[in-house]
Design a protein around this nucleic acid. Structure first.
Length: 368
RNA sequence: UGGGGUGUAGCCAAGCGGUAAGGCAGCGGCCUUUGGAGCCGCCAUUCCCAGGUUCGAAUCCUGGCACCCCAG
């Protein structure tokens, strides 16, 4: 059945249901499918619970991917991305926390690893496309002359937010076969294909922090950290009201672990230079203006000043109306119509026009 | 040691003779391809201690103890 016309697709297989079904669907559609699983880190370097099975790059995951590939009768390779992943993803993760910000490593991983190194590997293998199990839609829009990512049909599972940083050149070679499929259908398909991971749990943590304890991870990664940052000041309305464990271990919007003040209090700001963590009541989290950097344009070539968009400020966030004001190629200011809660430096802001991803950037600061 | 006040969960606190509200913290679960948030559930057999009155006491009485304030 192999003909010269068949296109070759590399599917990034994590061992989970979504990427497994992705591979199965493409194979059924007649593509020449190659399964590739990325080895991104070693457990002994990264610590935590080695037995954790829900992580996207864990050990069990690699075995599952191999077994699924065998079942589907497609070739399967494991590629060693430890070096680049450690440098780009883990390195950025640690740096950002040390700056008092809250990174989203999935964003960097998508840009640098899946649509960076993996795509280069796919090209080297002679593949025309890379496909993943992301829930997002992708189309080429003739009138815009751009590749446009948009929200998945299954809006509850939509992952378009995490894909804003992928370049146009990379999207040109990308497929998201699950964009129109509901999660429940994916599981049903997995059953039908007889895939062993049909009932496997969702992953829900940072893959390289398998015990979901990033504080532990940072302390192990930066040996002197605990000593340097312990016992900083907790500040409310300008007054020192307590102590904290160290600024990197908090994030804006956080409520737990601050101590009892007779009412709920939240982290409102983190100052790495003084090791101070500012806290306040819920209202103190409401802000209207942010500055985003490292911007990438997706569904539009550029932003118009005052352009109306719907913006998401974190992964699970209802998009709310705002106006964008570009400052330069990589920077824009965003003014929300209504104050937005807990805008967090280091997280991504993604701009939508309806279902389409217009652009995204990393939140750098709040103005008011 | 004169006068006044207060002692209820880790913290704040309601209750004022009828069988221990609520909030914060904590813990458990749900949710979730990031961190947070959110939601649900749990959390005082007992009210500083000892007696007493009462069918019934955290609530009333007596006596201790502790802390606070005002005086000296």
């Amino acid at each position: 059945m192999i003909t010269g016309k068949k296109k070759t697709v590399v599917v990034g297989m994590s061992g989970g249901v979504d990427s497994s079904v992705t591979a199965a669907l493409l194979k059924e559609q007649g593509y020449n499918v190659i399964g590739v699983t990325m080895k991104t880190y070693d457990f002994d370097e990264v610590g935590g619970n080695v037995a954790n099975e829900t992580s996207c790059c864990g050990l069990g995951a690699m075995y599952d991917a191999r077994m699924v590939a065998a079942k589907l009768e497609i070739p399967h390779y494991v590629v060693d991305f430890r070096e680049i992943f450690g440098r780009e993803v883990i390195g950025n993760f640690v740096e950002e926390y040390l700056r008092g910000r809250t990174p989203n490593p999935c964003i960097i991983c998508n840009r640098e690893i899946k649509w960076g190194e993996l795509l280069r590997k796919a090209e080297a293998l002679g593949a025309e496309y890379v496909a993943t199990g992301h829930y997002a839609r992708l189309r080429f829009d003739e009138s815009l002359n751009r590749y446009v990512i948009s929200k998945a049909a299954d809006e509850l599972k939509d992952q378009s937010y995490a894909l804003w940083a992928v370049s146009q050149q990379a999207l040109k070679k990308t497929m998201f076969p699950l964009g129109d499929v509901a999660k429940s259908q994916v599981r049903a398909l997995a059953m039908r294909y007889g895939l062993r991971n049909a009932q496997k749990d969702e992953s829900y943590e940072i893959c390289f922090v398998a015990d979901n304890n990033y504080e532990r991870f940072l302390k192990e990664r930066v040996p002197e950290l605990e000593k340097q940052v312990a016992d900083g000041e907790l500040v409310m309305e300008g007054e020192v009201v307590g102590r904290h464990r160290g600024y990197p271990f908090y994030t804006v919007g956080q409520r737990r672990g601050l101590g009892a003040f007779g009412r709920p209090v939240y982290v409102t700001e983190i100052d790495a230079s003084t090791n101070r963590v500012m806290i306040g009541e819920s209202d103190a989290l409401l802000k209207r203006v942010l500055v985003a950097r490292r911007c990438n344009m997706v569904g539009r070539a550029k932003l118009e000043a005052g352009q109306v968009v719907q913006a998401k400020v974190r992964y699970k966030d209802g998009a709310t109306s705002a106006r964008a004001y570009p400052e330069d190629e990589e920077t824009f200011r965003l003014v929300f119509d209504e104050p937005k809660r807990a805008i967090t430096p280091g997280q991504s802001v993604v701009l939508y026009d309806g279902s389409d991803v217009v652009a995204g950037g990393i939140i750098d600061g709040l103005l008011e």
